[in-house]
Design a protein around this nucleic acid. Structure first.
Lengths: 194, 194
DNA sequence: CGGTCATGCGTACGATCGTACACATCCTTG
DNA sequence: CAAGGATGTGTACGATCGTACGCATGACCG
């Protein structure tokens, strides 16, 4: 039997507080006590509303992933053609994502968690699937995977770079990765590695 | 005054043990006690050889970053031309990196640490600088940044994907990102976002 | 009105942590 | 050989952690 849960408004507050604490202190620093204090609820509420830390982390990161994916969907659904989609991608990276250190940190925390504990990989998988579905409105499946990886890399590096982010690099990179090569260019690469 | 340090062989053992423990349990689970036990040294040695956890983490991750960058240098220095360089990049991703869950996990741990604590960013910056220098033997600076980000993204996603990794996607992505666009393709993208 | 049970919380327990510091051991020097 | 500094370790302290669990509270029903 699972622990009963009520007062969903309080549950929500706890989840939001958990994300705040994780963003500020990391998963490692996200203790029941700190989250409870930040949410303004007693410590006992933690174990009452959530069976354990893992359940709370799962719900928190799922909420976070959804919020990012929502922005993805929103931006890309509004693009009229493939160039619009390219611009939408660049904007996603530069307007929504890079400017928010909070999102960057939370993303890293989630990825680290997922890399170590397979139980959390479903969250990242669902998130990536949503991203690719959104990209799939405008690009072929292979391009989606490449573009998705590129976005990830640009995003990740942005968290670690100290210099201001260079938009023109992003524009060029998105353009290249979404532009299929013609045959003559391809030929030089088909040689297998020994 | 800084704590004195001797017996560098023991120091080395501790650093290696730290990386093992971090790979297995994460930075959060890397306690002095666990590392000491894994290294076969007494707990007191920890504070004797390292001023604190941060110093140990710094040295450990620096060693890790160097080992990865060494592989980068090695592979890319051996490439004769630009196509060889492209193949070297693909090989780096598929042979050296993706196959090692340990490296993936350690990379995530380092990035998460660096994203939160600026003191650790020097490590990632130096590492990225070395990567880009190695890439710079064959590609122009802008391409280096794009390619570096792409490699990062492919690498990151590899840690989270459950399906086996598709080499042909990597080949195609590397080819695209390293192939400058011609002028007519460019024109469609120069329109600024409103 | 009184009983009962769902709902929610305060507190205390055992485990683990980083670190300080007194102490042991050994090596050099006189 | 004696002395004393250099090198290294065992242990104990205070803080923090997750979680279990007994108790408070109030709504609902007979």
């Amino acid at each position: 039997m699972v622990t009963r849960r009520f007062d969903p408004e309080r549950r929500d507050r706890i989840i939001d507080a958990a994300l705040d604490v994780i963003a500020a202190q990391g998963v490692a620093g996200a203790s029941h006590r700190r989250i409870a204090e930040h949410a303004g609820v007693p410590l006992g509420s933690m174990t009452y509303h959530f069976a354990g830390m893992d359940e709370l982390l799962t719900e928190a990161f799922r909420r976070f992933g959804d919020s990012i994916a929502d922005r993805f969907d929103e931006q890309l659904a509004g693009a009229a053609d493939i160039d619009g989609a390219r611009r939408a991608v660049v904007d996603l990276i530069h307007l929504d994502l890079l400017d928010s250190q909070r999102d960057l940190v939370l993303t890293h925390e989630l990825y680290t968690l997922a890399a170590r504990k397979p139980a959390f990989r479903q969250i990242t998988r669902d998130w990536m699937a949503r991203s690719r579905r959104a990209l799939g409105l405008h690009f072929d499946p292979g391009t989606c995977r490449m573009l998705d990886a590129l976005i990830e890399g640009l995003f990740i590096h942005a968290a670690l770079d100290t210099e201001p982010h260079d938009r023109s690099i992003t524009v060029e990179a998105v353009a290249r990765i979404t532009t299929p090569l013609n045959h003559s260019e391809h030929a030089t690469l088909e040689v297998a590695t020994t």
